[in-house]
């Protein structure tokens, strides 16, 4: 797939994908959003901040091409250019994998700042895939962000953790510490949303979540088999053929870049009566 790279000066926006809670879909979303941005022609790089538990490279399908990583660059053992992996499907997309053998203490504020500075000079969007939790790794991922995508599942513990993270975004980041700076633009991305379970009252509704978090909604990603399938083959879901989830991510990406896309909550197509009756036999 080729896209036309934009020739104007790079935007250099840093977007952190964070959540607090683990397993809500941060890495999947980081992969899908960065691929979606690249697909629209934006020069995009996605950085894995989950030092020691690296997964982004697998989701992006480049785990066999990792030679140097983020930590090598921070410690000066490699140049940034050597560590960046160009995606084979989208030439506007690069991946900066992290180390599997080190831990989060290897991240230094100065090192991260320096790398982001270099990346800002070349890329339109720098997507930081935050680790779970609110410790060093997550703090480093969010500290220099301009925008935040808070990935949340429609479920109470996830919502509470997201709220905690929103608090940190508005207090423990560079923008929060610099007086006069515009605060980080935080938006919530609701993932694993299952309309059928919402309808029978088993899952929180979009309104419930937004009422608690009180930030704008970036998108609603339906629970979809396409996501696990895409992860397993190492393809961001937006590049893995049409699906409800891919559509929802593409809409979210468009909103992220400033387009006004109507919020639609698409579900997996429900099996019809005949399919339900005879589906298993076939």
């Amino acid at each position: 797939m080729t896209t036309e790279p934009k020739n104007n000066p790079p935007l250099g926006r840093v977007i952190v994908i964070t959540s607090g809670k683990g397993g809500v879909g941060k890495t999947t979303s980081a992969a899908a959003i960065s691929a979606g941005l690249a697909k629209q022609g934006f020069r995009t790089v996605v950085i894995d901040f989950d030092v020691g538990l690296r997964n982004l490279d697998m989701i992006m399908g480049c785990e066999r091409r990792v030679v140097f990583d983020f930590i090598n660059v921070i410690q000066g053992d490699a140049k940034l250019k050597q560590a960046l992996i160009k995606d084979k499907r989208l030439d506007t997309l690069s991946i900066l994998p992290t180390s599997q053998t080190r831990d989060k203490d290897a991240l230094t504020k100065e090192g991260v700042e320096q790398i982001l500075k270099e990346l800002k000079a070349e890329f339109d969007y720098i997507v930081c895939d935050s680790p779970a939790g609110i410790e060093r790794g997550a703090q480093m991922a969010m500290y220099f962000a301009d925008e935040a995508v808070v990935v949340t599942n429609p479920e109470v513990s996830s919502v509470r953790d997201s709220d905690r993270v929103l608090g940190l975004l508005s207090s423990q980041t560079k923008r929060a510490e610099t007086s006069g700076a515009e605060p980080i633009k935080a938006q919530v991305l609701l993932t694993r949303y299952d309309q059928a379970r919402v309808d029978i009252g088993e899952m929180m509704t979009v309104d419930d979540v937004l009422e608690i978090l009180a930030v704008p909604l970036l998108g609603v990603i339906p629970e979809s088999k396409a996501i696990l399938r895409a992860s397993n083959v190492g393809t961001p879901v937006v590049l893995d053929g049409p699906s409800a989830a891919a559509q929802a991510y593409e809409d979210a990406v468009s909103r992220l870049t400033g387009s006004d896309v109507e919020m639609r909550i698409v579900g997996e197509r429900r099996p019809g009566l005949f399919q339900r009756l005879f589906g298993r036999a076939s």
């Binding site: 608090g167 508005s170 207090s171 009180a214």
Partner: peptide, 8 residues
């Protein structure tokens, strides 16, 4: 004048 978040 802003929402008070969990943990604050």
């Amino acid at each position: 004048r802003s929402p008070v978040r969990s943990g604050q």
